[in-house]
Amino acid sequence: MKNNDLIQVVFTEEELTATNTHLDALLTLANKNAPGLTPEQRSEYGAINETNKLLVNKAKIIMLENPKYTPGFVSPEEFEKDFAAREQIETMIRKLDQIRLKLNDTKILLDNDNYMDAMAYYRSVRYFANEHDQEAMPLYNELKQFFPNHNSQKEEAK
């Protein structure tokens, strides 16, 4: 018998508890330190592109070397704090992106496993319903609704 499983994942209760505890802690930290922008604010402030990041990096160096040109309304200390926090957040985002990618890839494989097994089950129920198995017929009628573009003889043959 062919096994369609591309991946097997089983989380222990301890792993789920630890993962959710860590995620909750990260969310609490983000809620404490990061504002929630409206879509309009995101559009208004945007994100600086790579060229502008280079400008910020170069201005930081030059500002430290030539403080007499720093306008009075720009606080070099606040600039430095913002700069450091931005770099720390970029590192966090890269790690979160790696986690998100791994979880999405795993979910894709699990979704595929579930879909293939569901299709095999559907084909089995369809076979028994076509053989006039009275118990299989209502099951088939429940499942065939997910194939509205196929007539009963030409159901999903995937």
Rank of each mutant, 00 (worst) to 15 (best):
Asn57Gly: 01
Ala85Cys: 02
Thr91Ser: 11
Leu109Tyr: 05
Leu64His: 10
Lys68Leu: 07
Glu50Met: 10
Thr70Ser: 05
Ala59Glu: 02
Tyr69Thr: 02
Asn57Cys: 00
Tyr121Phe: 14
Val56Asn: 03
Leu109Asp: 04
Lys102Cys: 00
Leu101Arg: 09
Arg100Ala: 08
Leu109Glu: 08
Lys81Ser: 12
Phe79Trp: 15
Gln98Ser: 10
Lys53Tyr: 12
Ile93Asn: 10
Phe79Tyr: 13
Lys60Phe: 11
Ala59Thr: 02
Ala85Pro: 00
Phe79Arg: 09
Ala85Ile: 09
Leu101His: 06
Ile61Glu: 14
Asn104Leu: 04
Ser75Asp: 14
Leu96Glu: 05
Ile61His: 05
Pro67Leu: 08
Tyr121Met: 11
Pro67His: 07
Lys58Asp: 06
Asn57Leu: 07
Asn66Cys: 03
Gln98Phe: 10
Glu50Val: 07
Ile61Tyr: 04
Ala84Thr: 15
Met119Ala: 07
Asp111Lys: 13
Met119Trp: 12
Glu80Tyr: 05
Leu64Ala: 14
Ile108Arg: 13
Glu90Gln: 13
Lys68Cys: 01
Met116Arg: 15
Phe83Gly: 01
Phe83Val: 00
Leu103Ala: 11
Lys68Ala: 12
Lys107Glu: 08
Asp111Gly: 02
Ile61Met: 05
Thr70Gly: 01
Lys95Ala: 10
Gly72Leu: 12
Ile93Gly: 02
Ile48Cys: 04
Ser75Ile: 05
Asp117Glu: 14
Asn57Asp: 13
Ile62Leu: 12
Asp105Val: 03
Leu55Asn: 11
Glu80Gln: 13
Ala85Ser: 08
Thr91Lys: 15
Ile62Cys: 00
Asp82Tyr: 10
Leu54Glu: 12
Glu65Tyr: 01
Glu77Tyr: 08
Glu78Thr: 12
Tyr122Trp: 07
Glu90Pro: 01
Asn66Pro: 00
Tyr122Phe: 15
Tyr122Lys: 09
Glu90Tyr: 11
Ile108Gln: 11
Glu90Gly: 06
Glu80Arg: 08
Tyr115Met: 09
Ile62Met: 05
Asn49Glu: 03
Asn49Arg: 07
Thr51Arg: 11
Pro76Thr: 07
